[in-house]
Design a protein around this nucleic acid. Structure first.
Length: 763
DNA sequence: TCATTGGGCTTTTTT
DNA sequence: AGCCCAATGA
């Protein structure tokens, strides 16, 4: 491996760093993923055990991609063993292993934001507090901040400032809500997102032998996007890295945009103080963007006071100026963008996937979506309400959760009366009181309803409750024999979930049914994939954990040639030749909710910086003079940020004087030029409807012909796989029923498949 | 217990 | 404008 040829001197120095703490300050587009990848590869080429390397990334997708790139250097079987993933997924894994130490069951549930908020709302109501003062969302957010700062109720109680804050805000019971919330989580055998980090800290602090074990194991710790770590994550790294002190962090203070979820920019600014012996490497050459784009970004970010000293530069071509376009309304803005994409697509032969439209808030996507539809431009929206957050999907998952962990209170509440079992709010309230008195889970109370507090319920209600408990128990028995896919099909049938929607007969209900069918397909794919992969985990717990920590970005779109729409937050780490940033208006970007402190405004500025630096060739900023919000049309002012970029990088276009007639004419003139492709429809789901029938069929085939299909494979053969695409056989391992083949797929990476299950087609 | 209706609130960003 | 929730009546 000749690193000298692959890297510039600064990158090379970072890759070759001998050991001990190091920090890489990597400007946008300066090849930080490249450096991280090669650094890990280099460690392994030097003989480091992959199990001893802990690499923490921001998204699952980033982890997957890095793993694949490392596999390209050191081989897949080695790369697979690196501990790589998001903080949440890696430590969920460790917590499951050590759950007993903390008194949690191994199969603990992970509560998502919605579960947490519902629980908090319930607690507030039970305590008979005013939800106007104790707003569940605000309380949830404050608890989250506390957890991420490792302020447990015990610490909280002894911190005068915090108690004073509560007095001032007239919510003296906050601490009690916090205590009850934790109590209820524990009783439900559940952890929220923040607990995954907090409990990891607790585990490492309370059990020196556990700490020692993982300290010894992780000889090297690497952290990507260090500027976005919170205090809780910071402490985990500090604890785990304390023995070997081989901590490598990579980040860019100018791209810190997650303070709202507790990210602490001080972590990166103070690294040198925590590790005085640390080496600092700076990557300042940008390989992504034109001189104009880099210049505009620098000029904007220089307005920030809190930053580490660095200047991004590039030897790329000069490029076009940043376009600043004003339109009359948000609809016109969307139309302009769609029109511009259509034109560039035609004239520059740019693929649709070369474009991304970014915005500050998810709600801005509507107008853009409708314009793209009109132009027949295929697109995919990321974020917003993701597939797994939909009500009907969460209902099905709630049944599964309850099967795995019957103490899961939020899961139980969701489905105890859906479909209707005539168990209503009154009954649930009484159960809840009993659960509190006996310090038992709701399910335990229900199951023993005849012996405990039977007097409180009438005969029919008791019978209904007993029936429900029996139903869950019988599903649990089923779960021992069936895989996720089979189990879900059975449970939907036996519970009558689809019938409940069919009875409604509305379009909305029909959509829900479709979504549930899509979920079943996703499961069939999951089961199939886990069975084909040598190291697959087909367990129900495994599936639920994966679903809980999945993010929208992790879902591969089935059609790759589409325009991308997402918030700026989600776009971090990505790049596109053509970027549109929409809604550069006061009270939108910067957001009015952030204008209280200078720090907040600086974060908004960094956000725009991140957006601009996503662009490789061309960057277009747009704003409208009127915008629909909350059902009304409001006048707007251009964003202050537009005046903070040096004019010499800008080219301003005013479309406010000639809007509709011109743009409308364009639509009618040009529409025929585009193929009559259907609008992409429900692109937000993450799962294509069109693949459904095929998938179901494929799974059935898989069952009936499991051992019949047998192909002789040899090294070098070209094969095709239904999901992974085409690839080349690297290695065949003949071993009768367990024969495996290692295949390098052209687009989806290298995987080892079990031939008995994998349906490969020889090309 | 369920269905309907009207009122209020929303839109900051996410693992 | 749309969604969620609480209150109301059956």
């Amino acid at each position: 491996m000749n690193f000298e040829q692959l890297l510039n001197p600064q990158q090379l120095a970072a890759v070759m760093h001998p050991g001990g703490p190091m920090m890489i300050i990597a400007g946008a587009g300066s090849g930080k993923t490249r450096v991280l990848t090669y650094r890990i590869a280099k460690l392994m080429l030097d003989g480091e055990d992959p199990f001893g390397i802990l690499a923490l990334t921001f998204t699952n997708k980033a982890a997957r991609e890095m793993q694949e790139r490392i596999a390209g250097v050191v081989g897949e079987s080695e790369a697979r063993n690196i501990w790589m993933g998001t903080f949440h997924s890696v430590f969920a894994k460790i917590l499951r292993r050590e759950a007993g130490r903390l008194g949690y069951p191994t199969n603990f549930t992970i509560y998502d934001t919605e579960d947490s908020q519902k629980l908090i709302r319930n607690i507030i109501k039970e305590m008979k507090l005013d939800t106007e003062i104790y707003k569940p969302k605000q309380i949830a957010s404050r608890i989250s901040i506390m957890k991420n700062s490792l302020i447990t109720p015990r610490v909280y109680k002894n911190t005068v400032e915090l108690l004073e804050q509560d007095m001032l805000a007239k919510r003296p019971e906050f601490l009690q809500v916090y205590i009850n919330y934790n109590e209820r989580l524990f009783r439900a055998g559940a952890m929220d997102f923040d607990d995954l980090l907090l409990k990891t800290n607790e585990l490492l602090a309370k059990f020196p032998d556990v700490l020692m074990k993982y300290q010894r194991q992780f000889r090297h710790i690497l952290v990507d996007e260090y500027q976005d770590t919170n205090h809780s994550q910071y402490l985990i790294i500090k604890a785990l890295g304390d023995l070997h002190r081989n901590i490598s962090v990579v980040g860019d203070d100018s791209q810190s945009i997650y303070s709202f979820r507790g990210a602490n920019i001080q972590n990166i600014l103070n690294f040198k103080r925590d590790y005085p012996e640390a080496e600092i490497y700076k990557l300042e050459q940008n390989y992504r963007s034109t001189k104009m784009i880099v210049g505009a970004g620098n000029s904007l970010i220089s307005k920030n006071k809190m930053r580490l000293d660095k200047t991004l530069w590039t030897s790329n071509e000069e490029g076009e100026k940043i376009k600043v376009v004003s339109t009359l309304s948000d609809a016109d803005e969307a139309r302009f963008i769609a029109d511009d994409i259509a034109e560039t697509h035609l004239k520059q032969h740019a693929a649709y996937s070369d474009f991304a439209i970014l915005y500050r808030t998810n709600s801005q996507s509507r107008a853009l979506e409708s314009a793209l539809r009109t132009y027949n431009i295929p697109y995919r929206i990321y974020g917003g309400l993701s597939f797994y957050q939909r009500k009907e999907i969460k209902d099905v998952l709630a049944y599964l959760r309850l099967i795995v962990n019957e103490k899961d209170e939020e899961a139980l509440r969701r489905i105890i009366n859906f479909p209707s079992r005539k168990i209503g709010a009154t009954t649930l309230d009484k159960l809840n009181v009993l659960a509190g008195q006996h310090h038992r889970s709701l399910f335990e109370i229900i199951e023993h309803i005849d012996t405990r507090g039977a007097a409180a319920f009438n005969g029919p209600t008791r019978r209904r409750l007993r029936d429900f408990a029996l139903k869950i128990r019988s599903l649990q028995v089923m779960a021992e024999k069936l895989n996720v896919y089979e189990l879900t099909k059975e449970l939907i049938k036996s519970v009558g979930l689809l019938e409940a929607y069919r009875k409604e007969g509305t379009q909305e209900a029909a959509n829900r049914i479709e979504n549930i069918e899509e979920l079943i397909n996703a499961m069939s794919e999951y089961v199939e994939e886990q069975r084909e992969l040598e190291d697959g985990d087909p367990s129900l717990t495994g599936f639920l954990q994966q679903v809980a920590l999945i993010s929208d970005l992790d879902q591969e779109p089935e059609n790759h040639n589409v325009v991308t729409l997402m918030t700026i937050h989600m776009s971090k780490g990505l790049e596109f030749p053509y970027i549109y940033i929409s809604g550069l208006e006061e009270n939108l970007f910067p957001s009015p909710l952030t204008l209280t402190t200078r720090e907040d405004l600086e974060e908004e500025r960094r956000l725009l910086y991140v957006a601009i630096t996503r662009a490789k060739k061309r960057c277009t900023l747009t704003y409208a003079r009127m915008r629909y919000r909350w059902g009304h049309l409001y006048d707007t002012e251009p964003s202050r940020f537009l005046d903070e970029i040096d004019e010499k990088y800008l080219e301003r276009t005013d479309l406010t004087t000639r809007t509709s007639h011109l743009l409308d004419a364009d639509i009618f003139d040009e529409t025929p030029a585009y193929p009559k492709s259907k609008p992409t429809g429900n692109v937000n789901s993450g799962f294509s409807k069109t693949i459904r029938p095929k998938n179901l069929k494929r799974l059935q085939d898989a069952r009936s012909t499991q051992s019949a299909v047998k192909i002789d494979l040899q090294k070098g053969d070209r094969v095709r796989h239904a999901r992974f695409g085409s690839g080349t056989v690297l290695e065949v391992n003949e071993n009768g029923q367990d024969s495996k083949a290692k295949i390098k797929f052209d687009h989806t990476g290298t995987k080892t498949l079990i031939l008995r299950f994998a349906k490969l087609e020889k090309l």
